[in-house]
């Protein structure tokens, strides 16, 4: 069993881990780096619960070995909030009830965070396509779409975000 030391930037912080070559990146993040916000739902690249950013791009961290992330910069759900508090995507998920059990949520929000960077507001169909690598068993996706729309408007619209009316709401 060969061990290797890898160096990576995790949520802006330099970190080092000593890992087996075969260790999946998701297990490195959860066990070696102690960041348990990134979840495992399948280990076979189907569910997206393990989605993180590698150099700013969403990646299912069960599809990569930890050693492949050597020298790279990664962001996990723990890195979404900034000094000013939670990110627009996190806020959108909270406001729009975009989560229930919360298990898919970190991965879903990482995919969403990359999606809302583009200037032009994606259509509902484009949002659905973009998150189709992330399974959610609880929400039926409608409120996840709303959460992403909320975040996009918050980031890109100069006007204050109107609170969306909910069916049967107050």
């Amino acid at each position: 069993m060969s061990l290797r030391e890898i160096h990576l930037t995790v949520n802006g912080e330099a970190r080092t881990a000593t890992v087996e070559n075969r260790l999946l990146l998701v297990h490195c993040i959860r066990e070696n780096l102690g960041l348990t916000g990134t979840h495992v739902g399948c280990e076979t690249s189907h569910c997206g619960a393990c989605t993180i950013h590698v150099e700013g791009t969403p990646v299912k961290s069960c599809t990569m070995f930890a050693v492949q992330a050597d020298g790279k910069s990664i962001t996990t759900v723990e890195g979404l909030a900034g000094p000013d508090g939670i990110s627009p995507v996190q806020e959108g998920f909270w406001e729009e009830h975009g989560l229930q059990c919360g298990f898919c949520t970190p991965g879903m929000m990482m995919t969403a965070t990359a999606l809302v960077r583009v200037e032009e507001e994606p259509s509902e169909a484009e949002i659905r396509e973009a998150i189709s690598g992330n399974l959610c068993r609880c929400t039926g996706y409608v409120n996840i779409v709303r959460a992403i729309q909320f975040a996009h408007r918050k980031i890109h619209s100069p006007a204050p975000v109107p609170v969306m009316a909910h069916e049967g709401g107050e």
């Binding site: 959860r30 960041l35 348990t36 996990t76």
Partner: peptide, 23 residues
Amino acid sequence: MGHSPRRKEDPRFIQGKGNYIED
């Protein structure tokens, strides 16, 4: 009853601080 406040459990879930079995 009848109000839709934001969920009380969500801050931990959206910040990766849930405590699931594998954690």
